[in-house]
Write a protein that binds this DNA or RNA. Structure first.
Lengths: 207, 207
DNA sequence: GCCCGGACAGAACGCGTGTTCGGTGGGAGG
DNA sequence: CCTCCCACCGAACACGCGTTCTGTCCGGGC
């Protein structure tokens, strides 16, 4: 085994365990076994369970952000950028389901200095989405409204970006179109709550 | 203390602990203390930690579903029903944030017979949403597509239905309008991926 | 040939956990 | 006044956990 070549398999094994059993229920012994090491051998490479979670999250977010930058680099229109984000996210959901699960569920289990660092990286991902929506926005929405919209979009992606909705790369691609169309129409067309047509959105829903 | 009156405070204490620390990290001792009982005293009322999680989930889902039925009962149009679902969900998110968190994060930690029961209840909630969307759908979408759309909608709601997005009942109300408008426009207007206007959603995003 | 450091492994430690067991007090029924 | 039962508690048990200590092996520099 080449030097340092253990890290990828350790992080992969950890990601699988964390995703399947949850961070606190996953055991170091199980991760060590899956990585082909003894328990003490695992501790030769990492400082502790907390650091292991950090490394998994850090690598996953790096991959996600790198993928986004790459997609964004070739996108020319604001609409293209939005679709690039959606595709990147759904692609990541398909190729790294365990990592996405950990990002969404376990990121706040980290102890404090590391938690803040991951939160910052995570935030930069949201900011990227927010910037795209700002470019796209025909209504000059406030920053708060745009942040809400960004979380609406990311919520959609996380709501659908997991089994059994994505079973293939093609699913990810076609779902990207569906999500992009659905979100974009709503985002571009609506002019605000109060201005929505009454038959669609009266203040009361018992009409 | 009146007979049986301990249950509400036990379930509330458990919900708070589960939500804040996660199911496995929350301890029976902490829950007992928060409920004003000793550890053994807590076990006088419930059979174990697993049952406690089940009771919390069961009560929360009952509340959520009951609220939905109540809102749906006075809604007359399909659009009104959709908005009723959105409002109910966001209202629940505001009034019972701990319970919603547990529903979304910890429902799969249950052991098997109970897990299936909760999953069924949960599914009936999704089915409710799916039925509403079917009524609303102008495109005769397939069941799979409608299920995807339902999860898109619920994903949005869960993406935004948590701090810091909902800080008041009014926030929940106005966000309902925003979400309703955004989703409805997208859902009603788009006719399908392939049919979307090219300037919005070309098959490629590098145009 | 020697040794030295890095890559591991076996076994143990201490701790927190869910759960249980044997009690105890006090109010209701006779 | 006695008894029974129900709500409840203190203390303990067994277990799994993260972590660490003490090695052992082995390939490469001198």
């Amino acid at each position: 085994m080449a030097i340092e070549a253990r890290y990828p398999q350790i992080l992969t094994a950890a990601a699988q365990s964390f995703a399947r059993r949850g961070f606190h229920q996953a055991s170091m012994r199980e991760i060590a076994r899956a990585a082909g090491l003894s328990l003490a051998g695992l501790y030769h490479y990492i400082g502790g369970k907390d650091e292991l979670l950090f490394l998994v999250l850090d690598r996953a977010l790096d991959t996600l952000l790198a993928g986004l930058e790459e997609s964004l680099a070739v996108a020319r229109t604001p609409e293209g950028k939005l679709l690039a984000l959606i595709r990147t996210h759904l692609d990541f959901a398909f190729h790294h389901p365990a990592e996405l699960r950990i990002i969404n569920r376990d990121h706040e289990l980290l102890a404090e200095p590391r938690r803040a660092e991951i939160a910052a990286t995570r935030r930069s991902y949201v900011e990227r989405g927010l910037a795209i929506l700002r470019e796209l926005d025909p209504h000059e929405r406030s920053g708060d409204d745009l942040l809400s919209a960004t979380n609406l979009l990311l919520g959609m992606l996380n709501g659908i970006g997991r089994p059994p909705f994505i079973r293939s790369s093609d699913d990810a691609r076609s779902l990207s179109g569906t999500v992009g169309a659905l979100f974009l129409y709503g985002f571009l067309e609506r002019s605000g709550v109060g201005d929505a047509p009454a038959h669609v959105l009266g203040g009361r829903y018992d009409e």
